[in-house]
Nucleic acid binder design. Structure first.
Lengths: 204, 204
DNA sequence: AGAAAAATCCCTACTAATGGGGATTTTTCT
DNA sequence: AGAAAAATCCCCATTAGTAGGGATTTTTCT
């Protein structure tokens, strides 16, 4: 029997998945959590084989939760289940050690498939997401990695000066990156860039 | 038979709801859409009694979709089904004519209840949300309505100057509101205010 | 009617960011 | 090894926003 824990802040979706999976006799949902902290408690207690885990959750996000779970219980399989098809989010989840990545706008059939795949040691990535390997020459981001790094800090509301201090570079460098990003993205002004940054942090 | 259309960009949730409702013999889901435009086509074609409608959707959001549907087919009952328990979102949906409002972090039992209630002409509001009437003296926002109005424009990336022009007030007034909001919210700087604005636009 | 709150506007000095340049070093790719 | 791309830094003039005041008018509440 494949035991599964779900972490997801939308009860409606949990109810739906439970209802959908009820008659699958190889899979059993042993509990659900509405935030990252609850998930940790649940996983420590029930030790499920598979964890289906949203990225954006209150209290503790999916990335941090995944890291902690895999440190404590390395045999657990973690599948990211999220609405964001964003390179950065995928990367961070994979870096945290996730074994699969599915989007919420995929069908629940895909969820079952993913659960079964990761259980036998395979990995499962939603066909809809950008494969981190196939992407390098085709769907490459407009922004460079340094630019994205800075954009993340901008999304946190930092000023150029603060970013410069955090990254040990000059303020003028940060300003240059800002200008280049504004130009590349066709925006106008700090406001639009920050708005872009915050919204794209977890794209929807 | 209560015919229902679902508009929701997460296929997983649609699958879940369909699975959950399958054995309810007074309710039948006659179709689903993944964005607002699809929803309009679906509703025109199938004319469901009830529409379960996400607010944030690609192409056309739930608020606009609701307005259009109720203009064309005034007997349709619209239930907002969303993750945002935000005063402004609730207000806008009610202003658009929605008959109910449920949160995605409620159980699907609540969804069934709401569908049945609105069908017999009642309204249904999730117990978890702030009732727009009971709220006026208890849960009043830290920010005044003018401040919130300005914050919404800030969230769009506008500068003080642009906001002043849009609202036909002086730039200095907008600046004063900015300063007051920063003080009230305990933030520091335009960056944090904008970040706050974008994130709270549709709170999660 | 009177008090309190909200909204309006202005001043000054200061810091933050843009838009226009230019320039050097480091990485990465072929 | 050489070219291309990325990352680094600087200058200048201008615009945007902060932090600190102060002040008047409108609304709202009691």
């Amino acid at each position: 029997m494949i035991t599964v824990a779900i972490a997801e802040d939308h009860q409606a979706l949990i109810d739906g998945i439970r209802s959908y999976i009820k008659y699958e006799d190889d899979i059993s949902i042993i509990g659900h959590a509405n935030n990252g902290e609850e998930l940790l408690k649940l996983v420590r207690l029930k030790q499920p084989k598979v964890v289906l885990c949203d990225i954006r959750m209150p209290k503790l996000d999916g990335i941090e939760a995944t890291k902690t779970i895999l440190k404590e219980l390395p045999h657990t399989k973690v599948i990211a289940f999220t609405m964001f098809d964003r390179e950065e989010a995928v990367k961070q989840m994979l870096a945290a050690g996730a074994h699969g990545y599915i989007l919420k706008n995929s069908s629940l059939e895909v969820v079952l498939e993913a659960i079964r795949e990761v259980t036998c040691g395979k990995t499962y990535y939603d066909k809809k997401i950008h494969q981190p390997n196939a992407e390098k020459n085709s769907t490459k981001s407009v922004l460079s990695s340094r630019e994205r790094e800075i954009l993340q800090l901008i999304a946190k509301g930092r000023t150029s000066h603060q970013i410069a201090d955090e990254l040990f570079i000059g303020k003028s460098t940060v300003d240059t990156h800002r200008k280049n990003m504004i130009r590349k993205l066709g925006l106008s002004g700090a406001g639009e860039l920050l708005r872009y940054a915050v919204e794209k942090k977890y794209e929807f």
